[in-house]
């Protein structure tokens, strides 16, 4: 019964969206055929594509490194049991806010501030990463266990020292989180160019807008292979940590 209701709703909505129009489907099919026929690698553009991948890599790396640096104090203050409850809650709220706003919106903001280019993308990713890693880090701290906190607490450590001890204790998990975030940022940096925030996405968007699908496809394949490569290397490193 539920399935029939869902089918009915889908059909009604498809009608209002114009999806039941046969002409539009035929036109879409022709466009797809044209698009696919133009998908080939333009080897003359490989140097440019590699340069764009380099830019994307730097944006992702900067975002990850600076975001991790920001998230160290944020997570130390956010974790329960290190600082006062109200301070922890306040900083946790700020970190949540950084994380809740999608990276692409941060990208738009920084394009407005700095103009289009890599700077906007790098700063946007740093903020977004700070929000995400703060959460990963403080959750890792909180999983350490009460007894551990109490034992370290009996040394009357100032909060910064307590945080340092916990970072050291959970070093491997922290590194794993940072590696994961770098992989994620590499993908995100690839699409930030859609809003003008640099990286390979910017070039792909430009080529698509002038209907140069072969060039866009070349850039797309290069970044795809690079992401696979980074994923593989990161996986090996994380296994060894």
């Amino acid at each position: 019964m539920v399935v029939w209701v869902l089918i009915l709703i889908a059909l009604i909505l498809a009608y209002f969206l114009g999806l039941v129009d046969l002409d539009s489907w035929l036109k879409a099919s022709r466009n797809l055929a044209t698009f696919v026929s133009e998908l080939y690698i333009r080897f003359d553009l490989l140097p440019d594509a590699l340069h764009a991948v380099g830019e994307t890599f730097i944006i992702a790396l900067f975002g990850t490194v600076v975001g991790a640096l920001i998230s160290y104090p944020l997570s130390a203050i956010s974790a329960q049991g290190i600082t006062s409850r109200w301070l922890s809650l306040t900083v946790r709220t700020i970190a949540n806010m950084l994380r809740t706003v999608p990276a692409i919106f941060w990208g738009i903001l920084f394009v407005v501030m700095f103009g289009p280019g890599n700077v906007a993308g790098a700063v946007a990713l740093a903020l977004y990463t700070a929000g995400y890693l703060s959460k990963f880090f403080y959750e890792t701290f909180e999983n350490v266990g009460k007894e551990h906190y109490e034992a370290l607490g009996s040394l009357a450590l100032p909060w910064m020292m307590m945080a340092k001890a916990l970072f050291k204790h959970t070093e491997k998990q922290m590194m794993s989180h940072i590696m994961f975030m770098f992989e994620y940022n590499l993908r995100t940096a690839s699409i930030l160019g859609i809003v003008g925030a640099g990286g390979i996405g910017y070039y792909i968007t430009q080529y698509v807008s002038i209907l140069n699908y072969a060039a866009a496809f070349t850039f797309f394949i290069v970044i795809l292979l690079f992401v696979f490569l980074v994923d593989g290397v990161s996986y090996i490193i994380r296994r060894r940590i």
Partner: peptide, 25 residues
């Protein structure tokens, strides 16, 4: 000093660093 069953040591730190923590304050 409280020594729980988990010991409360900093795992990736050296023996010396763990002991010196007692003077961090």
């Amino acid at each position: 000093a409280y020594i729980p069953q988990s010991l409360g040591l900093v795992d990736n730190a050296t023996v010396l660093e763990n002991i010196l923590l007692a003077r961090a304050a």
